[in-house]
Design a protein around this nucleic acid. Structure first.
Lengths: 153, 153
DNA sequence: TCGTTATAGTTACATTTGAAACTAATTGCA
DNA sequence: TGCAATTAGTTTCAAATGTAACTATAACGA
């Protein structure tokens, strides 16, 4: 059973965070909102998760990657990539071959069906990005780019 | 059994996303990195999740909130808040009373122990924020604030 | 005032995610 | 060589999360 405790009276010395001005919090809300908006687009139409789409986007850009390389490029961990690939291969969107000189490695690429889907989703994603950026003027957009470059880990 | 499909040869007309210049992707990586760095700080020291810490931060700032109000302020859904509160009350960090005029509502506040923890974690979080912002000069910081204000949903 | 509808919060179940252990293949070096 | 250490990827099990259904209380309108 959980015991009810007395609340402690708040005092001025506590200095709580003001979340509405706290950078990590604001970034988190903004990022989640934007990513979810894009995800809604393709999740409604295709049965695919955000992680799967990210894997596809990377495979569209770079050809013949291994699973580990996909993990590096998506900043996802290898277990997540392994699972996403299992579903994508199963759904016929990704082809998985074995590397000639290293039988541990997979050699990944989009299938016809994968490319077809990619070619529908990518423009939608770009359109959403434009919608967000449209709320900024050209000068602000330039600063945002510069700031993200400097903050990028 | 999963069937291996032939890869489709990539063609120029596909126009893949360049993730490294794609705003939603960059924001997501940045936000996750920052939030995780802060979370590492308090998860090592206290046994508390990111959602629990967010609830505590809101309760430090606003007194006597109900669970629903916490959900609104944290942009979390009510089930997540309910679960976080269950753990926090159990751990003696949050006090939960019942509203005088509405027995459905809880009236939430930090306990002594909750405040003690808050007063150690909040400065660490602020320090991490400062570390991030230190990579920007004053002008860039001002633009970042302005940009986030405009993008905030 | 009684019955319908709405709200606060919790519980149950299914799905997702993460960490660690595992298999298989490769590398490196004694 | 041949054996220990590394690497690629998967599986397993536990914890976290989301959705829907549920309980209890309150509000509202005929």
């Amino acid at each position: 059973m959980t015991v009810s405790r007395k609340p402690a009276p708040p005092h001025a010395e506590h200095a709580p965070l003001q979340l509405e001005h706290f950078l990590p919090y604001r970034l988190s809300i903004l990022s989640n909102t934007i990513s979810q908006t894009i995800a809604d687009d393709y999740q409604r139409r295709y049965d695919i998760s955000m992680t799967e789409w990210r894997v596809m986007a990377v495979l569209a850009r770079f050809h013949g990657l291994s699973a580990r390389e996909v993990a590096e490029r998506t900043a996802m961990d290898k277990v997540a990539v392994s699972r996403a690939l299992a579903r994508l291969v199963d759904a016929g969107r990704v082809d998985r071959a074995t590397h000639d000189n290293d039988k541990r490695r997979s050699v990944l690429s989009l299938t016809e069906a994968g490319w077809t889907m990619h070619d529908e989703v990518a423009p939608m994603a770009r359109a959403r990005e434009r919608e967000v950026l449209a709320r900024l003027d050209a000068e602000e957009q330039a600063w945002l780019n510069r700031i993200l470059d400097k903050l990028q880990p």
